[in-house]
Design a protein around this nucleic acid. Structure first.
Lengths: 93, 93
DNA sequence: TAAACATTTAGATAGTTATCTAAATATCTA
DNA sequence: TAGATATTTAGATAACTATCTAAATGTTTA
């Protein structure tokens, strides 16, 4: 769940679109899947990467797995980017 | 020079460290190279990717190539990330 | 102008990753 | 409980990428 994992997770357009979708609210895998032309297996792979990066949380609800956006990790990235722009010193890379 | 190229460029730790270095001011390839344990050829590859992503600019000064941080592209990314956090609608993905 | 220096380009290789199909696991419902 | 539904895991493949060495290009200096 470090910086590197977060950036890698964000570097794929499908995964960024998943995050965009989840802004509207939590969704099951099937609901997310409707917005893409990939198999469920591929989507599951992307969700796994986003989860390990801490960008989404999951919760099993009966037969469905519900995914929710988690924006806390984004703060670290925002912080780093602001420091690039602002010029303040910052350790993480 | 789209969103995708920027994120891909940022997803490599060497490239992020290059950006960190350039916060202190413009540098030649040789100066940047001192901070890494890779060959000049590999560094040149990374610089090329950062340049195509619009994250750095270059300028030839005699026998040296000087690279400079360009933070304008970061604004788009910051905007997108803020919208993920804030929940406002935003098109780019 | 020849040699030295700075950087990039070409070509190769090993590791990573996005995707697929098929199979496994888990849950619900008839 | 058997079958249907939802999601994940396993295994394979093609594409991509970070790195290297070697060679090419461009610039300065002796």
């Amino acid at each position: 769940m470090g910086f590197q994992e977060s950036f890698k997770a964000l570097s794929d357009p499908t995964r960024r679109e998943i995050l965009n979708l989840l802004r509207a609210g939590s969704m099951s895998v099937g609901e997310i899947l409707e917005h893409f032309s990939i198999t469920g297996a591929s989507l599951s792979h992307h969700l796994s990467i986003l989860k390990h990066a801490g960008l989404i949380d999951d919760e099993k609800q009966g037969k469905y797995m519900i995914y929710t956006l988690n924006t806390t990790v984004l703060d670290d990235i925002l912080n780093w980017m602001m420091s690039l722009k602002g010029g303040e010193h910052h350790e993480e890379s």
